[in-house]
Design a protein around this nucleic acid. Structure first.
Lengths: 189, 189
DNA sequence: TGCAGCATGTAACCTGTTACATGATTAG
DNA sequence: CTAATCATGTAACAGGTTACATGCTGCA
């Protein structure tokens, strides 16, 4: 049995939601449509194929509910391998590339950690995230100082939002790290 | 001749860069690798096909430089249609969907506006962006207040970063809007 | 009766990723 | 001489978008 990997943010989001409670494809769509996870595609053309892939690779299993009625529903739940693959994906090391090009995926990973991984793993994740974010922040702050004055208004403004965004993320990461630290010492004693 | 559209953020970024100065595929790669536009793919498998599409649809034209040498370079420049298509893409109306799922594309569009569209268009763009961003900010602030207390630590923290990010964007948009207003009145008098 | 919502899917198309491939030039 | 960089591509694959398609349920 080859090691299963999770092929996209959408699949990761589906697994994460299923780790909290079993749901049908339509249920998942409603979550994506109505909650703060609106950044995800709620189109059937994305969700149903993703569910099929997850079931084919053994990460989820669907059971038919309301068998007797004329409108059955496929309710999916995580398998043991599914939970293991999810935990593996959540705790994978963070790279600079992740911070630059896949921050949304990092945030998604963190958002599902409670209950799936221990507080030490969460702490380590956030420590690395804070470090990489601050490291990259220095890089683009430098770029803004160097090139900003020579850029036209709109280009400079765009660059400034980039810097502001990473600053916001870095601040949040440090704040969250402190929160995790408090939780950890509270439990440690 | 059908109206040409720009098929992706990468193509938009390429057109925008070419509007500032003609470049080869390799030159574009270097920009994506070394400047603040690191969020874009610098892989040849993305850039060269994109350049082919742009040339096929008549938005760019390539001319061979250093013909005589053994290492010729294809240098691309915008055509008239290319510039028109770019301007059209930059000034397209902003939707709530754009703000929720394609903020990167909106930022990209604004970053190339100076020199391609008038300050009134830039102002209108930023006014709409600020309005939509603040509108959506209210939505997720409400969600955070409503669901935040019931969420586990990591879920709530992720939601908080989402809110912080949109707050940062909204603040930036208002600041930039004010800057544009100053420029406009300065020129208007 | 008809319409909105429930519920699930398929198919064509397109873009990006990853990996591979080729050859020239230049600096050490 | 050889390694890094210049410079350009191709091919397989996979995932998302868009649009289409189907039929049931509950309500007005």
């Amino acid at each position: 049995m080859t090691k299963q990997t999770i092929d996209s943010n959408l699949s990761l989001a589906i697994l994460g939601l299923l780790s909290m409670r079993s749901m049908s494809g339509y249920g998942l769509r409603k979550v994506f449509l109505t909650t703060a996870m609106k950044a995800f595609s709620a189109s059937p053309g994305a969700i149903y194929p993703a569910l099929q892939r997850l079931e084919r690779t053994g990460l989820t299993e669907g059971t038919i509910e309301k068998k007797n009625t004329l409108r059955p529903r496929m309710v999916y739940h995580l398998t043991r391998q599914g939970r293991a693959a999810l935990v593996e994906a959540l705790t994978r090391p963070i790279t600079r590339e992740d911070v630059i090009r896949r921050m949304d995926g990092l945030l998604l990973r963190f958002s599902f950690m409670s209950g799936l991984v221990g507080i030490d793993k969460m702490h380590e994740f956030m420590r690395a995230l804070a470090a990489e974010t601050e490291g990259y922040l220095e890089v683009i702050e430098c770029e803004l100082r160097e090139f900003g004055p020579g850029l036209p208004l709109s280009g400079r403004a765009a660059l400034e939002l980039g810097v502001d965004s990473f600053r916001t993320t870095a601040r949040w990461a440090k704040k969250t790290l402190a929160e995790l630290k408090r939780h950890r010492t509270a439990k440690g004693e």
